[in-house]
Simulated scan of single mutants.
Amino acid sequence: MKFQWTWLLGLLFAIIIAIFSVLNVDSVPVNYAFGTSEWPLVLIILCSALLGAAISGIVAMFRSVLAKHRIKELLREMNAKELTIAAQQNQIMELQKLVPAMDPDEVKEID
């Protein structure tokens, strides 16, 4: 459901940008570090929106890769700790086998 709302909002945003850019078709000067040129404002608006979307997508993919790496790391750590717990439980069971079962009355006499 969340994906559908995100898709709908993205589509609405794209329509708003398209309408805004079509209304602004005048040529404007664009200053580069090495010169100046005239470009239609519609191209500048659309290119800016596409560049923003591309940068957002790249950042989202990077964060996704980092999250997947962290999940794998935590799963390895969890498995190692589960093995440690299992080994400690085995040690406890073996120690309990070595110590004979004592009556509660015997324990009181020891104190």
Rank of each mutant, 00 (worst) to 15 (best):
Q88T: 04
T6H: 01
H69D: 11
E106Y: 03
F3T: 12
L75C: 04
F34H: 06
G57M: 02
E38Q: 13
M102W: 14
E106P: 02
V42D: 06
L41Y: 07
F20I: 03
C47T: 09
N31M: 13
T6S: 01
I17N: 03
M93L: 12
I71T: 07
D26I: 11
L98M: 15
F62Y: 01
W5K: 13
E94P: 01
I58R: 03
L50I: 11
I15Y: 09
S21N: 08
I19P: 04
I15P: 06
G35I: 03
L8E: 10
L46K: 05
L98S: 12
V65Y: 06
P100Q: 09
V99T: 14
R76S: 15
L12P: 04
E82I: 01
T84Q: 13
V65F: 07
M102Q: 14
N31W: 11
S64Y: 13
V30E: 05
V107T: 04
I17E: 00
L83S: 13
Q96D: 12
S37V: 09
A67H: 09
L23H: 06
I19M: 11
I71H: 07
I110R: 10
E38V: 07
S27M: 13
Y32D: 02
E38H: 09
D111Q: 14
A87E: 09
S48P: 02
L50D: 06
V30A: 07
P104S: 13
L43W: 08
M78H: 13
Q91A: 05
Q91V: 03
R63L: 14
L23A: 09
S64T: 10
W39V: 11
L83K: 15
Q91R: 12
I44E: 06
D103Q: 15
S56M: 01
K72N: 15
L41K: 15
I15N: 07
N90R: 15
T36P: 00
